[in-house]
Design a protein around this nucleic acid. Structure first.
Lengths: 156, 156
DNA sequence: GGTGAAAGCACCGAGTT
DNA sequence: AACTCGGTGCTTTCACC
């Protein structure tokens, strides 16, 4: 369970975070090790659960999903948080859910096509049992820090 | 610029969102088209900017980054928002930045090793010129809705 | 815009050091 | 734990439809 990643693992992760389809042979060449080594390391990182999967970085805007908002949920005192989370996940527009400390009990991120679509999503959230009320914060502009920057810091 | 994605594109995107390393030959077989077609379609989706890249889904916990928080920034009236965003991006722990409407001017997500690490990150944010003050919301638990669920909805 | 075949590579397991 | 090597299978191109 306590897998210790070394410098070789870190470098492999750096390359694959940028491009999961970079050939192992190319990574091997850049690192002066054999392609077989890369193969074995990647398999171990997958088995250890450090690499959980691969995915595309897609442009939501270009697919018609321009609307992003964060929604804070206030629950009743007796509510089962997990049940509310399960309900949230039935709404595909809910992309991330956090249990938080502070004003809200749950805080989530939603994506929608437009304000009309978002209204429906928020209405659905409001209708979940045990949700007292919600407060939304609309994003006017979203940008991501290059994933590599955090990784550089993680990997020193 | 207005690239219209058809059913073939949608299916390819669905497969690759789950696993960017799924062989084109396998996708081709599942879809009853040739591998060459998949290749050409993927290239076009990349050129159109719909596929912006590929990346790993990694376990931040297992790499020692257990701490997640959202930070709301209140700026002075005369401040240049973009300059503050640029400053935020110099901090690798800042992963997402939003310009928002409402109580805050800017809202961002941070990842840190622990509370001590987070304290430093928030201190750095507080020190940015034009930042009047910040308010943080600590995540006690983070979970992601399967990316596929939104995509299924996007792709009907 | 799609196909199918062929050449060039990459993957990945087995055996070795 | 990493290397080499070889069989298998993937990618990518191109002439043709």
């Amino acid at each position: 369970m306590n897998y210790v990643i070394d410098e070789v693992d870190k470098k492999i992760l750096m390359y694959l975070i940028d491009n999961t389809r970079m050939p192992f042979t190319e990574i091997a060449k850049k690192m002066n090790v054999s392609a077989g080594t890369i193969h074995v390391r990647v398999k171990k990182l997958e088995e250890a659960g450090i690499i959980k999967g691969t995915t595309l970085i897609t442009d939501y805007d270009k697919m018609g999903y321009q609307f992003v908002a964060y929604v804070g949920l206030l629950l009743t005192k007796t509510s089962k948080t997990q049940r509310v989370i399960d309900e949230l996940y039935k709404i595909p527009n809910v992309t991330v859910v956090h249990v938080v400390s502070g004003k809200y009990n749950i805080f989530c991120k939603i994506r929608a096509k437009d304000t009309g679509d978002a209204k429906e999503v928020i209405y659905r959230i409001d209708q979940i049992d045990d949700v007292l009320r919600t407060e939304s914060m609309i994003s006017l502009e979203e940008s991501f820090n290059d994933k590599n920057r955090l990784m550089h810091s993680i990997f020193q």
